[in-house]
């Protein structure tokens, strides 16, 4: 049996999995509130509610659905925050060992990062990456910052009577803009992480949490050099 290297801890995999659940619920309940183009979703939520209320006309069913969306959206937002805070606290204790810090700084490093992405995703050739490439690191940083902004603005909207109307309106706009940015980022993330060239990472995140040492050595050499200490390795030959 080949040696395995822990890529994602149980906590990381658990949080990632539940983030997906929350993301799906927050998206389907948030879209009708963002734009009338998604009011069909609100009708879907409002229709069963109309059996229990006196909502009869299409507009009343839509309003019921919107209210359901708002309530579920808020509850999901609060639950996500409750889930995210302990995860963030645990991760912060290991901030020095985060693999999303840049390997190098400066303009040259950024240009090299873009070149590596080009070689990896356009030429499909081997690149000497760390655990993550530059695009994955940027995604991680963006998602952390955007999630904090979404949480803060979301809570401002829940308790918006405590803020002036102008601040509430700004929070709503920031919430909408960052949602769009997250959606676009997610499209990239979902496509690239489920792409066959990333199948080992996908398997590690959703199934095993580990990668074979041979694969890590071949594809993530920079990272492999960092984790040669024996306490990071599991399995036969440890």
């Amino acid at each position: 049996m080949e040696r395995k290297i822990i890529v994602f801890t149980q906590l990381q995999r658990w949080f990632h999995m539940h983030s997906i659940h929350f993301f799906v619920f927050l998206t389907i309940t948030g879209l009708p509130l963002l734009s009338p183009s998604f009011s069909g979703l609100a009708y879907v939520f409002g229709w069963p509610v109309s059996w229990l209320t006196d909502a009869g006309s299409a507009k009343e069913i839509l309003a019921s659905g919107m209210q359901v969306s708002r309530v579920v959206h808020r509850v999901m937002g609060i639950l996500f925050t409750i889930t995210a805070i302990p995860f963030a606290l645990v991760m912060l204790t290991k901030i020095r060992s985060w693999q999303i810090w840049p390997e190098r700084w400066g303009v040259r490093a950024i240009l090299d990062g873009f070149r590596d992405l080009y070689i990896c995703y356009v030429k499909f050739d081997k690149v000497n990456f760390g655990k993550y490439n530059m695009g994955q690191k940027q995604l991680a940083w963006f998602l952390m910052i955007a999630t904090v902004i979404m949480m803060v603005t979301g809570f401002m909207l829940i308790f918006r009577s405590s803020f002036p109307d102008a601040i509430g309106a700004l929070a709503k706009s920031a919430h909408a803009i960052f949602f769009i940015l997250i959606m676009i980022t997610m499209m990239f993330h979902i496509y690239l992480s489920t792409h066959p060239i990333n199948r080992h990472g996908l398997k590690a995140m959703f199934k095993t949490g580990t990668m074979e040492e041979r694969y890590v050595k071949e594809k993530h050499l920079l990272w492999y050099k960092k984790i040669e200490e024996p306490d990071k390795l599991v399995g036969k030959g440890r």
Partner: peptide, 19 residues
Amino acid sequence: SMLFHSFARTSGAAVAAVT
């Protein structure tokens, strides 16, 4: 603030489609 909100609504669909 609503101009930003409108921008998010209209540009969001276009950017998602292009992506």
